[in-house]
Amino acid sequence: MRVLLLLLLGSLAWGKPVATPGWVRLVPPVLKDTAAYLTLENRGTTPLRLVGAETEVAQRVSFHRDHREHRHGQEVLGMRPLPHVDIPPGGKVVFRPGGYHLMLEGLKRPLKAGEKVAITLRFQDGTRLKVLLPVEMR
């Protein structure tokens, strides 16, 4: 019984990622990159570090965060790649326009509105999480 409890506690001490699907942005066929959005929650007790992602529809998936600065009194926007994304225990990271996004780089084919794109998220502790995101124009 005690062993079982310890095992249970041991398993609770992991980072546990839960994804709430968002969407993949529909882009014109001339474009070879697009953005994907979702919410990642850590329901575990240890920090989670998102270190990579893969999808069959793109050559590479990277993480970006929007970058804002003011020049001549106007807002200049850009984005910066992130080597990884940390999600604290009990916390969440929202990927949404104007904040974080997953960038699907080098699309192998044009995506269609309504189709579902499978993306596998890789965490540092070896956890993998597969998410299905619909392609939408928004």
């Binding site: 970058h67 807002e75 926007l77």
Partner: peptide, 23 residues
Amino acid sequence: FGVYYQKAQYRGPKEYLVDHTAT
């Protein structure tokens, strides 16, 4: 128009981002 733009995260002639005024 007073628009600022600058290449960023340059990785090659076809691989870079552009920071730009978003007004």
